[in-house]
Amino acid sequence: MQRYVYSFVIMILAAALLAACGSGDKGPAETALKAAEEAINTAKGEASKYMPDQVKSLESALASTREKLGKGDYKAVLSEAPALTSKAQEIASAAAAKKAELTKSWEGLSSGMPRVVEAIKSRVDILSQSKKLPAGMSAETLAQAKAGLSEITQQWTAATEASKGGNLMDAVAKASSVKVKAAEVLTLLKMPVPEALKS
């Protein structure tokens, strides 16, 4: 009988010890989660614009870790939270690099494309005054070029507006579609396609 009592006491003590150890992890787990939350919140500002999918994954992982904290699974929190913190920092760095890249692209496009558009406009204006179109160019071709120029002008205005609004991703995407259309129109007009428009 006494043997059973001892075993019971030992089991109770072991359970209490385990509980004490577990609750001892609570504070560090909360601190680690808070650090992860702060890192994610800091990264989110720019990263949401340039890599929204990665931010979404990060937030979903944070929610899962937060849930584990609520359930008292402190060991899991202590293992996952630091990884979230470093992932948030990694994403913030990548977003900054992406922003720099897009800024550079936009600077190149915004200085180069207006000259291309101006060259197209000049040729369309001159051909519109012509009594007879050059060999190999039909009135339909010129009409297509005029429609293309109109589309280019609208898209370029939209790209500029997007850039002014701080949406570089959209600005560069729109400017890239202007590049493609401009190359088509230059070809219709039998004009040389600049290197920057060939890719």
């Binding site: 190149g108 180069g112 494309m113 000259r115 060259a119 396609v193 600049p194 290197e195 920057a196 428009l197």
Partner: peptide
């Protein structure tokens, strides 16, 4: 070189 030069 000016990659955007469309001069003919």
């Amino acid at each position: 070189a000016d990659a955007f030069d469309a001069t003919q």
